[in-house]
Amino acid sequence: MNTGARRVREWLIERAIQAAGAMAIVFVLAIFAFLLRDALPVFRETTVRDLATGRTWLPTAEPPKLGLLPLLLGSLYVTIGALLISVPLGVACAAFISEVAPRWMRETLKPAVEVLATIPSVVFGFLGLLLVGPWLAELLDLDVPLFAGLGSLMLAFMAMPMIVSLSEDAIRAVPMTLRQNSLALGATQWQTIWRVVLPAGRSGIIAAVLLGMGRAIGETMTVLMVTGNAAVIPLGLPGFLRPVRTMTATIAAEMGETAYNTPHYHALFAIGLLLFIITFAANTIADVVVRRSGRTTR
């Protein structure tokens, strides 16, 4: 048999597989490098300080005003609002599925949540724009049916499947014996959930929240369609009821009409870079938290 040729072929295949394995790292670095490459020239026009603290975003003015503060705060508002809704609801739903729901319900709820996760974000944007926004505007007596809180609400429901399913995994991973010990001490089922199960699953839940946050801050189409896109700095609680513009929406709305290699183009890449760094941090911290929890529960 031609074993020599076979050996060479296998060697080649295995090197190819190895290369594919390392591909993920290459891609992460490549994304970072390309964002950096097209973002850095923006500093010919402005400084980090002006970008971070500038209160006006008028990229097509002459000279362009490239203040990211309104966009940063816009993203922050929408994301925090989304987390305020989705974290308590999502964790409660996860606890319900894992600890309380009767069996048949558990088996219906999990796939239902998964189906929810498949709905495209543009559809959530569409439904917010045509259905939920007008309805809420009437209910709250608002002039404009596009506002930060609407973005938060739609995002909350989009981030929910991820938060529910990851938290549920974390809660389910809590050893049965801990529950039994708590019950044996005379705790009710709820006391056991509240005082033992949730604290024991804490790191997994925190990771779920971080990943949900990363998802919310990076979400594009929904916020683009429902938050009104006014690049103004949101203030206080009423800020939730006024239009805002997020970082993602700015890129999506403006990149299509921007000329290559203009300050505007570079500024949009700078926003992209900032988004990449924020989500990278959220994901890495979540990953570390999960790994650490894996060690302590054992």
Binding site: A24, V28, F34, F280, D287
Partner: peptide, 20 residues
């Protein structure tokens, strides 16, 4: 490191993929 990269790829905002 590869696993960390995969987790991070999964978390990159879709609009950033667009930019890339």
């Amino acid at each position: 490191l590869i696993r960390l990269a995969i987790v991070n790829l999964a978390g990159v905002p879709s609009v950033v993929y667009g930019l890339f």
